[in-house]
């Protein structure tokens, strides 16, 4: 595995059916003593309908890479393409579930979900009706009139998910969406996500620091190296059949073998990451 696998994998997706492509993307931040290349020469392809997880040590540049795919940051070198077209501004085909709270605190749950439709010109009553449907779908039908601060962390993530999915984006970008949640809630959210995803397979780029979660959810798992100049160093297909149940997937035969194999590579990067940020 490793470099060879990356090359093989990226090559195997026909550019036309590829939802997101990162082609040798470098992202540089201006810092006090010059520039800092958080990500350098990162390449990754996500096929239409494919669920890909990015795993890497904390601070390696996962969010940064996702921001590039969203068009929120322009790469210093390389390019991003979306369904075959090079991205120049925001990625309008993508819905983005952010790592930190991004709900509008002054809007109720239902208004938070409806806003995406309202700004697209859907009339208010219709937008609200569909927002209520989505809230019900994520299990929050009775929480429509709550403000974000009256919801638990897990409930806020559900509202966020509904807010993004109601617009029916072709690509779903998710940045450690279940990061701050407890283990049980993560499993429930994971199953919910798989349910919603299997209904109309979107291309998903899912960032997590939890390898088990990545394997349980994804078609493919990619590993990023520790920063700076982070890039994709490993790419694995997950050979587990769908539909899956997150809590049972860990009992599957292939799971442990794959976990061990990926963890061997990831562990080294995590240790490197600690050494660098400690220095």
């Amino acid at each position: 595995m490793g470099e060879a696998a990356v090359a093989e994998k990226s090559g195997s997706i026909n550019p036309a059916s590829r939802a997101v492509g990162l082609n040798g993307v470098t992202i540089a931040f201006t810092v006090a003593n010059g520039t800092y290349n958080a990500v350098e020469q990162a390449s990754l392809s996500v096929a239409d309908g494919e669920f890909v997880s990015i795993v890497g040590p904390t601070g390696c540049g996962k969010s940064t890479l996702l921001n590039a795919a969203a068009g929120l940051i322009a790469p210093a070198a390389g390019s991003v393409d979306v369904f075959g077209r090079t991205l120049t501004g925001l990625n309008h085909d993508a819905g983005y579930l952010f790592q930190s709270d991004a709900l509008f605190p002054w809007k109720t749950a239902i208004d938070n979900v409806a806003i995406g439709l309202e700004i697209a010109g859907v009339d208010t009553a219709e937008a609200k009706r569909r927002a209520q449907e989505w809230l019900t779908r994520v299990g929050l039908g009775n929480f429509a009139n709550r403000y974000p601060h009256m919801l638990s962390g897990g409930q806020r993530k559900r509202v966020g998910l509904a807010q993004v999915l109601i617009r029916d984006p072709k690509i779903l970008l998710m940045d450690e969406p279940f990061g701050p949640l407890d283990a049980q809630t993560r499993q429930i959210m994971g199953n919910l996500l798989l349910d919603l995803w299997s209904a109309d397979k979107k291309a998903v780029l899912f960032v997590t620091h939890d390898l088990e979660e990545a394997i349980a959810l994804s078609d493919r798992v990619v590993i990023m190296s520790a920063g700076p100049a982070s890039h994709i160093i490993g790419d694995w297909k997950v050979p587990i059949a769908r539909p899956r149940d997150i809590s049972e997937v860990k009992l599957e035969k292939g799971f442990h073998e794959l976990h061990r194999e990926i963890w061997n590579m990831l562990k080294a990067e995590v240790l490197k990451g600690y050494a660098q940020s400690g220095a």
Binding site: Y96, D101, A102, L103, I119
Partner: peptide
């Protein structure tokens, strides 16, 4: 919050909608 702003833009708000839905309420 920059995250809320980024979220609003990803949801498709134009400058005028940002004013109304994000800057004014804040």
């Amino acid at each position: 919050s920059p995250t809320i702003l980024a979220n609003a833009r990803m949801l498709g708000m134009n400058e005028r909608q940002l004013m109304r839905n994000v800057y004014w309420p804040s």
